[in-house]
């Protein structure tokens, strides 16, 4: 299986080609720097993304408060994270930085609020 990924490490936007077989990388081509190669490999094997959402809050400035993960989370877990958060309702006041979920699904990140509510 061959993947063509537009690199986002720098504005150059190399289209890096990665070939994998049985879950193992066979070749990486068309990259111009080692950071790009590293990125492409990670993007194929274990892509991670920043995560952001909102959580309902009662009595706050707005009906919801924004949250984020303290570090990137695996792409495949994002949907389940929003499902977890859909059952959370906070009670104001909630200062920014409050931990809403601690180490959810063992992802080794916290979900914290990013504005006051």
């Amino acid at each position: 299986m061959k993947y063509a990924l537009t690199c986002i490490v720098c504005p150059l936007g190399c289209v890096i080609e990665v070939e994998i077989k049985n879950g193992e990388i066979i070749s990486v081509a068309n990259y111009k720097c080692p950071r790009g190669k590293e990125w492409a490999i990670e993007e194929i094997l274990s892509p991670v993304r920043p995560f952001m959402s909102v959580v309902r809050v009662i009595g706050g400035i707005f009906p919801v408060v924004s949250v984020k993960s303290t570090g990137p989370v695996p792409k495949e877990n994002m949907k389940d994270l929003t499902k977890l958060l859909s059952n959370v309702v906070l009670q104001a006041p909630v200062p920014a930085g409050t931990v809403v979920l601690h180490n959810p699904m063992g992802l080794k990140v916290d979900i914290v609020t990013t504005r006051d509510a």
Binding site: P50, M52, S66, K68, A96, T114, R115, D116
Partner: peptide
């Protein structure tokens, strides 16, 4: 540093 909008504003 990479912040969210509300964090940057605050």
């Amino acid at each position: 540093e990479d912040l969210t909008g509300p964090e940057f504003a605050s």
